[in-house]
Computed example of a mutant assay.
Amino acid sequence: MSRLNIRNVLSNDLDCVCKIESLCFPAAEAASKKAFEERISVFPKGFFVAELDNEIIGFINGGVTNDIHIEDDFFKTMDLHIPDGDNIVIFGLDIHPDYQRKGYAKELMSHFIEDAKKSGRKKVLLTCKEHLIKYYEQFGYVNEGVSSSEHGGAKWYDMYLTV
C-alpha cells in the first residue's frame, strides 16, 4: 500500500480540489472555485492536500480568527481571516469517495491539528452534521450543540478542540 503524502496546496491543485469538493458536498454547501482560489492565495499554510502516488485524493483547509465560532461568511471569503489570530477554523475535510473509509481523513485531521499546535493556535473550530459528531469526538473535539450557521441550508453543530 502506498504511503500518504501530505503537503501544502499549490495553485495548480485548484481544479483537482474543486472536483473533489463537488463529489463530497451538495452544491449548496460546496465551496466555489473563487473561494478556493482566495483560500489558496491568502492562506496556503492552512490548506493541505493528501496525495497517493502523486494523485490528490483529499484535502483539509481553513482560516484563522479570534472568534470562537465560524461565521457563515468565512466559508465564502477570506476577508475574516486574521493571520495571527488565536483559533484556526476548518472549512472542509474532503476525501475523494473512492478513498473514503481507509483512514486518510484521520491522517489529514491529525496533520492539521499538529500544525495548529506548532503555529501556537489555542483552538481548532469546525462545524459538522450530526452524523459526524462522534467521528470528530475521537480527536478530542467537544460538541457545543446546534450551530447558528445556516450554510447551505443544512443543520450544523459547532465543535472545538483545545490545542
Score class of each variant (00 low, 15 high):
residue 136 Y to G: 01
residue 110 S to E: 14
residue 58 G to V: 00
residue 123 K to I: 03
residue 151 H to M: 13
residue 37 E to T: 09
residue 4 L to Y: 06
residue 135 Y to E: 04
residue 71 E to G: 06
residue 76 K to Q: 13
residue 113 I to D: 00
residue 108 L to R: 00
residue 90 I to Y: 03
residue 33 K to P: 02
residue 16 C to N: 15
residue 64 V to R: 12
residue 117 K to E: 13
residue 107 E to I: 00
residue 126 L to G: 02
residue 64 V to Y: 07
residue 115 D to L: 09
residue 2 S to L: 08
residue 20 I to S: 03
residue 73 D to A: 14
residue 22 S to Q: 07
residue 11 S to H: 13
residue 159 M to R: 00
residue 114 E to F: 12
residue 108 L to P: 00
residue 26 P to I: 13
residue 46 G to N: 06
residue 22 S to K: 09
residue 30 A to S: 12
residue 143 N to W: 04
residue 102 K to S: 05
residue 123 K to G: 02
residue 64 V to I: 15
residue 33 K to A: 08
residue 108 L to G: 01
residue 26 P to V: 09
residue 108 L to H: 03
residue 132 L to Q: 10
residue 151 H to F: 15
residue 90 I to D: 01
residue 37 E to S: 12
residue 49 V to M: 06
residue 17 V to I: 14
residue 58 G to D: 02
residue 128 C to T: 14
residue 104 Y to S: 01
residue 11 S to G: 11
residue 63 G to I: 05
residue 135 Y to W: 13
residue 84 D to P: 01
residue 115 D to A: 11
residue 33 K to S: 09
residue 125 L to V: 10
residue 134 K to R: 14
residue 25 F to C: 03
residue 109 M to E: 03
residue 40 I to A: 04
residue 144 E to Y: 15
residue 66 N to G: 08
residue 67 D to W: 02
residue 127 T to K: 12
residue 135 Y to D: 02
residue 66 N to S: 10
residue 104 Y to M: 07
residue 88 I to H: 04
residue 70 I to M: 10
residue 97 P to N: 03
residue 33 K to G: 11
residue 99 Y to W: 15
residue 150 E to W: 06
residue 70 I to A: 05
residue 50 A to Y: 04
residue 111 H to I: 02
residue 69 H to N: 10
residue 88 I to K: 05
residue 126 L to T: 04
residue 117 K to P: 04
residue 100 Q to Y: 06
residue 55 E to I: 11
residue 23 L to K: 11
residue 127 T to S: 12
residue 41 S to M: 10
residue 151 H to D: 10
residue 10 L to Q: 14
residue 122 K to G: 10
residue 118 K to I: 12
residue 15 D to G: 11
residue 13 D to A: 02
residue 135 Y to V: 08
residue 8 N to L: 07
residue 114 E to C: 12
residue 137 E to S: 11
residue 56 I to L: 06
residue 45 K to S: 14
residue 142 V to W: 09
residue 74 F to C: 05
residue 111 H to R: 13
residue 72 D to V: 06
residue 127 T to H: 09
residue 146 V to S: 04
residue 57 I to L: 04
residue 31 A to D: 09
residue 21 E to A: 03
residue 79 D to I: 09
residue 74 F to P: 01
residue 121 R to H: 15
residue 77 T to A: 05
residue 146 V to M: 11
residue 57 I to A: 04
residue 78 M to Q: 10
residue 73 D to Y: 14
residue 51 E to G: 05
residue 79 D to G: 07
residue 63 G to L: 10
residue 46 G to I: 01
residue 15 D to E: 15
residue 105 A to H: 04
residue 15 D to N: 14
residue 104 Y to W: 14
residue 33 K to W: 06
residue 41 S to V: 07
residue 126 L to P: 01
residue 6 I to C: 05
residue 19 K to V: 13
residue 68 I to E: 15
residue 119 S to Y: 14
residue 93 L to F: 01
residue 117 K to F: 06
residue 137 E to H: 09
residue 99 Y to C: 08
residue 60 I to V: 15
residue 22 S to M: 02
residue 38 E to K: 14
residue 127 T to L: 11
residue 56 I to W: 08
residue 35 A to D: 05
residue 96 H to T: 03
residue 107 E to H: 09
residue 104 Y to D: 01
residue 76 K to I: 06
residue 12 N to I: 10
residue 19 K to L: 15
